[in-house]
Design a protein around this nucleic acid. Structure first.
Length: 223
DNA sequence: CGTGTTTGACCAGCGC
DNA sequence: GCGCTGGTCAAACACG
């Protein structure tokens, strides 16, 4: 997986850290930021297990967090969005963040299990969003171009592309974390993922990977 | 049979 | 009031 760095609009504020550590996502629609811990915390000799287990990607996937000034940029956008959309925006703001990955797979393997519960056409796509419009082009003469999971790219009989948000929920019964996945229409190699909420349970895949290691560490520390 | 996806319908808030 | 929009529901279906 490789990375595409997109500078935020306007003059960036001074950085205190390395810009190459971040992936900017100016078109991201979140209401608040919750960047995962820096990758440096995942070094083997300095593992922050608490951050690792609460990290949305479980530290397993090749993802980059949003930079501090991209977050500031979005904070400004948030006010604008809330003025436009009104109280429909969630009143109790949940931790939310987004990132873009350049990958052939729409679904990032983040170690958690997800269940898809809906799909919508996307604003700023070739077609405006809305169930009626989406349903009207989702007729028998529409062919599915993308056979992968996640954001589905459809084409009508004129070959015009339609990109959709896909809505996913964590399948863990006590967990209410959601995520949205979209493949960008202007660069179909990029997948934009938005997470909402924090998992209240450890990542199964991560625990499977770590359990033998932890057992070995416990054994060695017993001497 | 359990799990996950698809998809039409529905809901609530907003702008006009 | 009506249409648009973002988000969700739930029945039907597919698959291992």
């Amino acid at each position: 997986m490789e990375w595409k760095e997109v500078p935020p609009p306007g003059p960036p504020p001074p950085l205190n850290n390395n810009p190459s550590d971040y992936l900017f996502t100016p078109s991201f629609p979140s209401t608040s930021m919750h960047p995962p811990p820096p990758q440096s915390q995942l070094l083997p000799d300095n593992i922050d297990w608490v951050s690792l287990l609460s990290c949305p990607n479980g530290g397993l996937s090749d993802t980059k967090p949003i930079s501090p000034y991209a977050a500031a940029h979005y904070e400004g956008m948030k006010d604008e969005r809330e003025r436009k959309r009104g109280s429909r925006v969630r009143k109790a703001t949940r931790p939310r963040f987004a990132f873009q990955t350049k990958s052939a797979d729409d679904i990032l393997d983040d170690g958690y299990r997800w269940r898809k519960y809906g799909q919508k056409a996307v604003k700023n796509s070739i077609y405006p969003s809305g169930a009626a419009i989406f349903a009207s082009i989702k007729s028998d003469d529409v062919k599915e171009e993308d056979e992968g999971k996640g954001g589905v790219e459809l084409a009508d009989d004129l070959g015009r592309r339609v990109v959709a948000w896909s809505y996913y929920r964590c399948t863990h019964h006590t967990c209410n974390v959601k995520k949205q996945v979209q493949r960008l229409s202007n660069d179909t190699a990029i997948v934009e993922t938005t997470y909402e909420g924090i998992h209240n349970h450890p990542c199964e895949q991560l625990m499977q990977t770590l359990t033998p290691l932890l057992r070995q560490m416990q054994f060695l520390s017993s001497f």
